[in-house]
Amino acid sequence: MHTNISRMKITISTLAVLLLVVGSLGALTACEGAEEATGAPLKAQERLQVATTTSLYDTGLWGYLEPMFEEEYNVELDVLYAGTGKALEWGQRGDVDVITVHSKSRELQFVADGYGVERVPFAYNYFLIVGPEDDPAGIKGLTPEAAFQKLMEDGSASFVSRGDDSGTHSKEKAIWAAAGYDYEDVRNAGTWYVEAGIGMGPTLTMAHELEAYTLTDMGTYLAFKSDLELVPIVDEGGILLNVYSVIAISPESVSSTNIDMANNLIDFLTSEEIQELIGDYGVEEYGMHLFTPCAGNEPG
C-alpha cells in the first residue's frame, strides 16, 4: 500500500515535469521553422507571408511552388489561404506581405486605396457553371448571362452560391449584374437560391447533394470531379474569365511589410521558368491545363 503512495507521488511530479518539458519542446519545435531559415526565430525579415485565394491553394499549386521559392531566396514562405475578401482584409491590416487573388475590380480598388503597390496578373483560367447531367433548367449552350436569366425566371432549379465574399462569389455577382439583376433581388428570389457561406469544395459537394447548379473555378472542380455527379453546363463566355494577380502590400500603408521579398515573389511568379511550370501544372494529374500563364499582362 505505502509503495503505491510513494510511487503515485513520483508519477505526479514526473507528469508535471513531463508536461512542462513537452510544452517547452513544443514551443521550441513550433519556432523551429523560423530558426531553420537564419537561426534567429520569428524575425519578420526572414519570413514572407502570402495570402492566397482558396481556389488557388486547393489546386496544390502553392505546395508545388513554395519549396522552389524558399530555396531560391532563402526565405520561409508562409502560405495562408482564404477567400479573396479575407485576403484583402489581411493585406489591408498588414498581417500579410503579399496577396494572390482573383477579383479584378476589388483589386483595382485595393491598389487605388493605397494598400497595394501594383496589380500584377500572372495566370488565368475560366470559371464554369456546373450542374446535374440532365440539366433540369435547360441552360446548356446559353451564355452565362442568359443562363442566369433563365434560372431566375424559371425559379425551380436550385443554385448554390458561395455567399462568402470570395473571388468566385464576386464573379457570380458580376454575372448577375451583367444579366440585368440587382443582387439583393436575387438573394431574395426564393428557396432555389442557396447561400452556402463555405469554401469551393464544400460548395460543390452541397450542389451535388442538392442536384443544383453552381459557379466554380476549374481547379477545384477538377480536384473534386471524381466524387461528384456534376458536369460542366456553361463554360464559354468572356465574363467567365478568371484572372489571378499578385499584389505586394504597399510599405507606405504598412511600414512593417517585407516589400523586397514581396517583389522577389512577384519576379518569381512572372519569371519565364515559373510561368512555364504554372502552364504545365496539373496536366499529369488531370490531363488538362489548369492555368494559362500571362506574365504581367491582362489577358483577353
Binding site: 513550433a30 519556432c31 495562408l80 498588414g94 498581417d95 512593417s256
Partner: peptide, 20 residues
Amino acid sequence: ISRAGPLGNLGLLFTPAAII
C-alpha cells in the same frame, strides 16, 4: 495581435505563439 492591433508590432499573428 494583428498588425493593426495594439500588440501588432510583436509580429505574433500566424505563428505557433498565437495559437498558444
